[in-house]
């Protein structure tokens, strides 16, 4: 687990855009042999949730939020040698953001949690048009498709994307997650069979382990 004091120091550095201090704190945690999953949920996810709240409350600017996200993405790439070293189980997942959704870090972290659990994961990234997504799914043949949504204003795009995917791949298991669902959309999502809502990286981790 991430100590509260370390978390506060990291968040402060993140909001100031102090990339090197954030890196040093993460390095120290890694030296102390922290579990990568704890790092993801206890540091990266929670700090970005806090950044998101501060942005929503008009306490920090878009620029500060983008810097925090960019610093976190940079730190994630430092962990890839550990993430991709996991023994693979042969299952495949495709993770993507829908069209017009530019917040990709949540989806990236989801893809990494899959990799940590031995799945081969394709992360397609931000603002993916549905036709590109259909072609990629056809090419890869995943067991699971994960769709990440940060902005509630894109909820309709998400639901349309799921409808299109479902018309092509009748039995593909789809799950969705992201901060957008804090503002609604769950009822509509639950009406679509074979579609699941995963509220957090922790729940995803538990689902994959079980």
């Amino acid at each position: 687990m991430v100590d509260e004091k370390v978390f506060a120091l990291y968040l402060e550095a993140l909001l100031k855009g102090n990339r090197s201090q954030c890196g040093q704190l993460v390095d120290r945690l890694l030296e102390a042999d922290i579990d990568i999953k704890d790092l993801y949920t206890g540091l990266f996810q929670d700090s970005l949730y806090r950044v998101g709240e501060l942005w929503e409350n008009n306490t920090i600017s878009v620029a500060t939020e983008h810097v925090a996200t960019a610093i976190t993405e940079g730190l994630l790439s430092r962990l890839y040698p550990r993430i991709f070293a996991a023994e693979h189980c042969g299952k495949k997942a495709v993770i993507s953001c829908v069209a017009n959704e530019w917040h990709q870090i949540g989806g990236k972290m989801v893809a990494d949690i899959f990799e940590l659990n031995g799945w081969d994961t394709d992360f397609i990234g931000a603002n993916t048009p549905v036709d590109d997504l259909v072609r990629h799914i056809d090419l890869v043949g995943p067991d699971v498709l994960g769709l990440s949504l940060s902005l509630y204003s894109n909820m309709e795009v998400l639901l349309q994307t799921i409808a299109t995917i479902r018309s092509h791949f009748h039995e593909l298991h789809i799950f969705c997650g992201g901060q957008a669902f804090r503002w609604g959309g769950l009822e509509k999502l639950r009406q679509i069979t074979g579609t699941e809502y995963i509220p957090s990286l922790h729940v995803l981790e538990q689902t994959l382990v079980n």
């Binding site: 855009g17 983008h66 810097v67 610093i71």
Partner: peptide, 11 residues
Amino acid sequence: TENMRSTLVGL
């Protein structure tokens, strides 16, 4: 904006 620019250039 300048802070964001320098962070992004560094990254």
